[in-house]
Computed example of a mutant assay.
Amino acid sequence: MGRVVLIGAGPGAEDLITVRGLKLLMQADCVFHDALVSPSLLSEAHPDAKLVAVGKRCGQKSTAQHFINKQLVEAAEQYKLVVRLKGGDPMVFGRADEEITALKAAGHTVEVVPGVTAALAAASSLQASLTLRGVARSLTLTTPSVGSDETPSTDLFTGTENDTVAVYMGLRQAGPWAAALLEKGRNANTPVILCESVSLPAEKFTPLNLGRLPLFSAEQLTDGPCLILIGKALAKACVELQLLKHNPEEIALPDFFRAA
């Protein structure tokens, strides 16, 4: 009976995987990997390891989760060490629970190695703390993305005006959920940063405010994954990004932007 390890590959850059994760990747007999895992990171796998792509990309053909579960169980019966390499952290919107449950039900040993999730990598690139003394005391990780058997919801999160929110896989549905936040009284000038291809050479940050987010078109972005950060703690980063773009009139800066 094989050993299966779920490893967080990090947000994109190949050198953001943990040391433990890299060591296990180099020892694995079989590696199941997401679509966004860096090819250069996959090249670190053992030369004899079998590489199996099981990635999911929004709007594109992907491997069904139940089939991934089945493949993992079968691989654990065939190989000594099986690695499931997931983008970001396995336990944050990674459907890890379904894979762990299937493997344990089949009697296999499962381990998890954490990874750097996109929200934390984006904050590091921006040099913007997601929690800020006197401004933001909490951080919410959320997504509007649901399974095929679930009803879409625009009720993403609750909390105070000062909370920081990281929205994963939410750009295509940004219109409805951003409008819902505004209807609930969220300030239209709340800072928003669209974070594309975080930690990669092509990473890009676009400052907005919540009032403009429902009007933003996903077609203006690249094909890379996009994380949306929202909250007053991002005020200083928004101002700096606007200055870098040499177009400070693009968004209306509220008082707390100027004071940051």
Rank of each mutant, 00 (worst) to 15 (best):
L171S: 06
V52K: 01
E74Q: 15
I228A: 04
A174D: 04
E44K: 15
A237D: 05
A218H: 13
H108V: 01
A28G: 03
D163Y: 00
P152N: 14
D89H: 09
E98T: 12
T140N: 00
A76R: 02
H33L: 09
Q127L: 05
L16M: 10
P152H: 15
F32Y: 15
A35S: 15
R212E: 13
Q127K: 13
T160L: 05
F205S: 04
S62L: 09
T117W: 05
T140I: 10
D223A: 15
A49Y: 07
K236S: 12
I100Y: 01
R84C: 02
P225S: 14
A188T: 07
V73H: 04
F256S: 14
G87T: 14
Q127N: 12
T222N: 13
T63M: 15
I7Q: 06
H246R: 12
F157I: 05
G10D: 01
F257R: 02
K70E: 11
L182C: 05
Y79V: 06
S197L: 06
P207Q: 12
I17Q: 00
A202Y: 00
V113R: 03
V52M: 08
L85I: 02
S153H: 10
E219F: 07
S129V: 04
A180V: 02
A28V: 09
E111W: 08
L16G: 00
A105Y: 11
T142G: 00
E74K: 15
A118E: 10
L221T: 14
H66N: 08
V113C: 07
C238L: 07
D163H: 05
P225I: 15
G12C: 06
G231Y: 03
C58V: 13
E111H: 09
K70D: 03
A188Y: 02
A53E: 14
R84G: 00
K80A: 08
S197Q: 12
L130K: 08
E14D: 10
G107K: 06
C238W: 09
S217D: 14
D34W: 13
N187M: 02
V146D: 03
L215A: 15
C30D: 03
R95M: 02
P207E: 06
L130Q: 07
L51S: 08
L16A: 02
A121Q: 08
V135F: 06
S217C: 10
G115K: 10
C226N: 08
S38K: 12
K204L: 10
E250S: 15
A259C: 09
T154L: 00
L244W: 12
I68H: 02
Q242N: 13
G185Q: 11
L42Q: 13
A136P: 07
G2A: 03
F32V: 14
V165P: 00
T154I: 01
M1N: 03
V239L: 10
R95K: 10
G88E: 08
A202G: 02
S197D: 08
W177Q: 05
T206N: 00
A76F: 01
L41A: 11
L25G: 06
M169D: 07
L16Q: 06
L132V: 11
